[in-house]
Design a binder for these strands. Sequence first.
DNA 1: TTAAACAGGACAGAAAAGGTACTATTTGCG
DNA 2: CGCAAATAGTACCTTTTCTGTCCTGTTTAA
Lengths: 156, 156
Amino acid sequence: MLRLSKLTDYAVVVLSRLEQDGAVVGGQVQTAPGLAVSTGMAEPTVAKVLKILGQAGLVEGVRGARGGYRLARPLTAMPLAEVIMAFDGPIALTACVDGSVNACEAEDHCPVRGRWDPVNDAIRHALSGITVADLSAPQGCAPMRAAASILNLMAE
Amino acid sequence: MLRLSKLTDYAVVVLSRLEQDGAVVGGQVQTAPGLAVSTGMAEPTVAKVLKILGQAGLVEGVRGARGGYRLARPLTAMPLAEVIMAFDGPIALTACVDGSVNACEAEDHCPVRGRWDPVNDAIRHALSGITVADLSAPQGCAPMRAAASILNLMAE
DNA sequence: TTAAACAGGACAGAAAAGGTACTATTTGCG
DNA sequence: CGCAAATAGTACCTTTTCTGTCCTGTTTAA
C-alpha cells in the first residue's frame, strides 16, 4: 500500500476543524488543547501536527496567552499535495530520484534509472488538483466536491 | 515520501531484463540465478521477486531441471499498477479504506471518513495508464514513451 | 536415480514511524 | 512587575514494518 503518514490524515482533520471553528484567515484563534477535545485526538499529537503545519506555512501560530492557531489560507486554496509534502516529504515513489546519484549501487545494470520521474510527476499532478476543502465535509457527508475535482482533473 | 517497496523497483528491473533476454510469452525461460548475475542483484532477492511476480500472474514459472521464468504477458500489456499491487498491496493512501470500519476509533469526530477514496482513485487511474514497458529502456536511455503515456493520461 | 530449479513459509536484523515528554520562549492579564 | 497560558523546538523511547536471507518441500529433465 502506498502508505502515507498518519499525521497527514490527522492534519486534514485538524485543518477542517479549524475552519469549522472559525479560525480562518482573519478570524480568531483556536488552541491546541481545544482542538484535541473537539477532534478526540491526544493533545500532544494535535500539538505536533499543528507545529508541522505551522512550519509549512499552512497555519499561523499566535504565541503567548490567549494564543492559538488559525488557517493561513482558505482550505479551497490549500492543495493536498502541500499537506502531504509537509509530513511525508517530497512526493516521489522511489529513492532513485532527486539527483541522488550514488544511492543506486548497480547503476550499470539498472535499466530503469531515472525512469520513475514521469510516474512521480503524474502522481504530483493528480494530487495538486485536489484541495483540503475537497476532503473536508462541512457537515455530515453531503457534498461531493472531491469527485468533481477528480473529474475535472481527468478532463484536462 | 510516498514510499513504495524496494522490491517493486527490483521487479521492474527483473521484468525488463526478462524481455531483454528473450524470455517472453512464447520464448525460452531464464533462471533466477542467471537473472541475479545479469542484474547484479543478490540471488535470494531475485528469487523472492520472481516468486511474488509468479503469484501475481505476471511471470510464468517452469519447474524442474532446465526450468526458469518467462513473461506471462508483453511488458506493453503490463500496467505498472499491477506490479505495485503485487508488492505493496492495494493502492490506497490511508488505512481508512476498503471497508475497514472499526479501524478508526474516532469515527464520530472524523470529518474526513471515506473522503480519501476519490484521491485513491485518482492515483490508481494515473498508474493504470503507465505500463512496465514505459519504464524499461530497451537499450541506453533513448526513448520517452513514458512521457507520452503521461501526456495521454492528461489528455483524457 | 540424480541434480537443477521453482514454490512456499519462516526468521533475524535494520530501519522508520508514532507517540510522549521536557524545556525554552512569548505574551496577555492581574 | 510577576504569573499563567500557550506556542516552538528538541529529544527520546516504543512499536511496527520492511528488507534480506535461509530452509524445506516439490517438480522434472537428463
